[in-house]
Design a protein around this nucleic acid. Structure first.
Lengths: 211, 211
DNA sequence: TAGATTGTTAATCGATTAACAATC
DNA sequence: TAGATTGTTAATCGATTAACAATC
């Protein structure tokens, strides 16, 4: 698969470019943006913007720049957000609930937001069967079944550190390919699974260095 | 200041090394760890571990490795977590509340956890004066005063995107040097302020690429 | 056409990895 | 001492930046 050779930093910048384009008025059909201007908005150099985009194709016109609408569509396609993505959360504590509500609200506010909350999971029997707004909470044993039923493609993990590897293994068993982990542990995943760490305590430690 | 020349990736790995050491039993006075073993636990090469540590000093013994207790102390000092760090949060919504509770619980559970929640801030008059557990909620106008009063060194921003730059400017005016932003916007900060972005929607976009 | 800006190649920069003498 | 592992230098790798011919 060609994607293996795209550097992670490039993927991160692509997401930033896409967000900038999404915030622009794309109804104007002939709006163009130069690599210079897009770079300024993204906080990177113009050459870097052109080099990043060139990894995926030729989207610009010499002397003019990139048609905003066209580039937006291409970036959505490249980033796989040209269609809704169903998302699950394992761990319906404070943080899991907050993230579920955040995504529900984003979806409601912005029709173009591609991430759809599909289901929640929690080990605690006091929680299963209950709901967070419209979202049902299932038990951990149901992860494999419900991931299939709801076509969940992306899992967020918000369980305590001690339960995070188990939650991860379950997700992988269910066929999940991309995991966003909020628990403060290094998870072990097979190479075909993409794992991103979103670890507040590690980020606080990182920041403390600059005090 | 010497810190300006330490690459950001090195600082991130230092935080990882420190967490690994914190999880080890350091009561055993003569416990040693080699760069090989520490690297395995951190998921990096042995040479990288030695190179990273060498940027800050000589902490090892040839033929033996690094004394766990000593290295832990040195890393705490280097990362500025050899003393408590007071933390504030602007934006007491779902996410801000979840993060406040998370840190309160971590502090209570683990005496060595250096980050102490000091105060919360919110623009909504319905919230100011109320509390989240023991934490008082102040109005946004009080940020400058209360940052000083509570010696807050580190600010988390969990307001909506539209309010994030204002919250940031207030924090900077109050003398904050390190900011963790959860709002989905690129913030503008002066060079002496360290800003880390913790943007769930950007992370989801990033992950979607690998679907 | 003249001016602007792309896509791409070449040059630079920085970070990672390998190798090894020093030494505990 | 012999074996192991550090700290550091040199080699490799990869990413960023600069430059410019192609061309809209």
């Amino acid at each position: 698969m060609r994607k293996r050779k795209i550097p992670q930093v490039v993927v991160e910048r692509m997401a930033v470019y896409l967000r900038i384009l999404n915030e622009m008025d794309t109804d104007e059909p002939d709006r163009y943006i130069s690599s210079q201007d897009l770079g300024d908005l993204a906080g990177v150099g113009a050459a870097q913007v052109r080099k990043d985009l060139a990894l995926f194709g030729e989207f610009g016109k010499q002397g003019v720049g990139y048609q905003v609408r066209l580039l937006q569509d291409e970036l959505k396609r490249i980033m796989n957000v040209d269609r809704p993505i169903n998302v699950g959360i394992i761990g319906v504590g404070e943080l899991g609930t907050a993230l579920a509500r955040y995504n529900l609200r984003r979806s409601a506010d912005d029709k173009a937001y591609p991430f759809r909350m599909a289901a929640l999971f929690d080990n605690n029997p006091a929680k299963t069967g209950r709901r967070v707004e419209s979202l049902e909470i299932f038990s951990a044993e149901e992860v494999v079944d419900k991931v299939k039923e709801y076509r969940i493609k992306l899992m967020m993990i918000t369980v305590p550190a001690s339960a995070a590897q188990t939650a991860t293994d379950l997700s992988i068993k269910a066929g999940i390919k991309a995991i966003l982990n909020f628990a403060p542990v290094k998870l072990i995943v097979p190479p075909q699974v993409k794992l991103l760490q979103s670890d507040v305590s590690l980020q606080l430690h990182h920041l403390a260095f600059y005090l």
